[in-house]
Nucleic acid binder design. Structure first.
Lengths: 202, 202
DNA sequence: ATTGTTATTGAATGACTGTTCAAATTTTGC
DNA sequence: GCAAAATTTGAACAGTCATTCAATAACAAT
C-alpha cells in the first residue's frame, strides 16, 4: 500500500524509554531522543506524537514490564512467606542493577503537582502494582502467615511505602542498602530480627 | 563605603527556595526566579552566582530549617516512645501541609547520577538528619524501648526509608496517607497493631 | 564636591528548545 | 510504468534558555 517503516517502533520506544528513564523528562531534549532512537524529528512526531506523549508511552511500556515481573514473583506456587522473601530479594537486586532509579518512582517525584492529568496517569500505573500486592496478601492472610496486619489493603500500602523508601535510600546510600530489605520484611512479619540472631551467652 | 543592597538577601533566598521547591531545578527558569525574587538578572547573579549555585544555596537553607525542626522534636525531654510518636505525627502533618513534597527528597530523586558533586552534596544533607536519628536511638535503646532492632544505626536507616517511603506515598495517594505513619511506627516497635485493637469476640 | 566602591538595570548574547512542513523517497496496487 | 499512499529528511521556525556587561545610580569616606 505504501512505504513501510524503516525503523522498529518497539526498539525506538525502548531507546526513548532508556533516555527518559536516565535523565528525566525535563533534562531530556528532543535532540537527545533523535540521537537515542536514530529517528529524525519528523518520524518521531509521526510515530509518537510530541515529547509529552512519547514520555507517557515509554512510561506505560515500563509499567507493563514491571507489572509482568511483579506477577512472576507474586503468583509462583509456593508458601506466601517464600514469595515475600523472593519479592524483597528481587527488589534489592533491581535497585542495585538500576542506579538511575525506577522510572516510575522518578516520574512520580518529578511530576508537577499542578498537572493533574499527568499525576492521575502515574497514580493509575502504581495502582496496578498495589492491586497485585493486595491480591497476594489476601492469599497470605488466608495462609496465616504471621503478618503485622490482617488487612490486605493496609499490607499492600505498607509495601508500596517500602518500594518508595528503598528507592530513596538506594539513591541516598547505595553502599548501605543491602541489609535493609530483609529488615523491612522482618518488620512486616513482626520479627525483631536480632533477638533470633544474638549469639547465645556463655 | 558603597551603595547598599535594596533587597533583603534572606527574603530573596526564601523566594527562590519556594520556586525551586515547587517546580524543581530543571523546570525553574531564570525568568521564574527573577519574577519570584524581584531581582533583576544582574543582581541575582551578583548575589547567588549562577542558577546551580543558587539552587544549592536554597537547598542548604531548607536543610538547615529541617534539621532545626528535627532537633526540636527529637531532643525534647520525654520518654523516647513519646518522641517517636511525636516524630511520626509531625511528619504526617508536614506531608499534608506540603503537597509539593519535601524539597530535599525531590532534589535527591531529581539529581543526575552522573553529577557526583551534586549527589554528594545532597547525601551530606541527609546524613545530618540520619545522624540526629541515630543519636536519638542510642538514647532510646538505652531506655529499653521495645524496638525492632537494638542497633541505633540500623534504626536510623529504617526511619530514613520511612521518610522516603511516606513522601512517595503522599504523592501517590495523599488521601490514603493518614493511617500509614502510625502503622510504620508500630512496626518499628514490633507491635502487630490490630491484635490489640480487635473487638472482643462475643 | 570628588573619589572609590558597590548595586541596579535591562538590553543583548548565542545557544538550544520543541515543533512543523514541504520536498524527496520508497513502497503497493493497478 | 503510473498513481496513490506512507515514510523520510533536514532545514527552518519562533520562542526560550542561562548568562553577560556596559551604563547608570547610590552610597561612604575624604
Amino acid at each position: 500500500m505504501a512505504r513501510p517503516k524503516q525503523y522498529n517502533p518497539d526498539t525506538a520506544l525502548k531507546n526513548g524509554m532508556e533516555t527518559f528513564w536516565h535523565k528525566g523528562f525535563d533534562a531530556t531534549s528532543m535532540t537527545n531522543l533523535v540521537d537515542a532512537t536514530g529517528l529524525k524529528p519528523g518520524s518521531l512526531y509521526g510515530a509518537f506524537g510530541n515529547k509529552r506523549t512519547f514520555y507517557r508511552k515509554t512510561l506505560e511500556a515500563y509499567a507493563e514490564q514491571m507489572v509482568t515481573q511483579l506477577d512472576e514473583v507474586l503468583t509462583q506456587e509456593r508458601p506466601a512467606l517464600e514469595t515475600l522473601e523472593a519479592f524483597y530479594a528481587f527488589f534489592l537486586n533491581f535497585c542495585v542493577d538500576t542506579p538511575q532509579g525506577c522510572f516510575m518512582v522518578n516520574a512520580l517525584f518529578d511530576a508537577d503537582i499542578d498537572d493533574q492529568e499527568q499525576l492521575t496517569h502515574i497514580q493509575g500505573l502504581f495502582a496496578q502494582m498495589e492491586q497485585r500486592l493486595k491480591t497476594f496478601f489476601e492469599k497470605a492472610v488466608a495462609e496465616k502467615v504471621p503478618l503485622v496486619s490482617q488487612d490486605p489493603d493496609m499490607l499492600a500500602k505498607i509495601v508500596m511505602t517500602h518500594i518508595y523508601g528503598l528507592r530513596g535510600f538506594a539513591k541516598y546510600r547505595p553502599d548501605q542498602l543491602a541489609a535493609l530489605p530483609e529488615r523491612l520484611l522482618a518488620m512486616l512479619l513482626c520479627m525483631p530480627t536480632e533477638i533470633h540472631c544474638d549469639p547465645p551467652e556463655k
